[in-house]
């Protein structure tokens, strides 16, 4: 096919098109939009993208993403160093941090156990978690993986890898009714779980 577009434009379209959720039409729209913007807008975007790769580090303790290694949470002396909350992704840390009520540490697995996607135990940070627990001082590991089949299997895997540590309590986030919602509108599974996990009044 003859090149209908100058090379820089088609390269930009191609690059946008590789991003998740961006189809060919959207990629074109983005490229032409940027073309019409002042140079500063394009430079800010280019710098942000490069900084993302250059300046974001993975914490070598908890594997959360941050500007420093070890990360701000791992070095924060005010946090409860006896509890580790295990999550699938950095965004889960943000969700939990927004609460403000959890004061322990984190461990980011960077995925869930999913052989069909080629993600096996060694692709997750489970061995590193075991190492952290073995180092001592941990009383509780809270497994906060998703309530999907893969999240449950991941939780199961983490539990079995930690079961040899006496004095370390492995817990799983409770499943039940969303607060502020009517029982009438809860889906059956959630309601069943809420009933199973009922608590004393």
């Amino acid at each position: 096919m003859p090149a209908l577009l100058p090379d820089p434009i088609s390269r930009a379209i191609e690059s946008f098109g590789r991003l998740p959720g961006i189809g060919p039409k959207t990629a074109q729209r983005l490229a032409f939009h940027l073309l019409r913007q002042p140079r500063e807008v394009a430079e800010a975007l280019a710098r942000a993208v490069v900084d993302l790769k250059d300046q974001i580090l993975e914490c070598s303790t908890c594997f959360n993403l941050g500007a420093t290694d070890p990360c701000g949470i791992c070095t924060d002396g005010a946090r409860d160093r006896t509890a580790i909350c295990v999550v699938e992704a950095p965004l889960d840390v943000i969700a939990l941090e927004k609460l403000g009520s959890y004061r322990g540490l984190y461990h980011v697995l960077h995925g869930s156990f999913s052989p069909m996607d080629g993600i096996l135990e060694d692709d997750l940070r489970i061995a590193d978690l075991v190492r952290r627990v073995r180092a001592g001082g941990i009383n509780e590991v809270i497994v906060a993986t998703n309530a999907t089949v893969e999240g449950e299997a991941t939780a199961n895997l983490v539990r079995t890898r930690l079961q040899s540590f006496d004095g370390v309590r492995a817990t799983r986030l409770a499943q039940g009714l969303p607060i502020g919602s009517d029982i009438e509108y809860a889906d059956d599974y959630t309601l069943t779980r809420a009933l199973q996990n009922r608590t004393r009044l």
Binding site: E152, N156, T160
Partner: peptide, 9 residues
């Protein structure tokens, strides 16, 4: 042992 969680599920 990586089969165990899938057996359980």
């Amino acid at each position: 042992t990586q089969l165990d969680p899938w057996d359980a599920e």
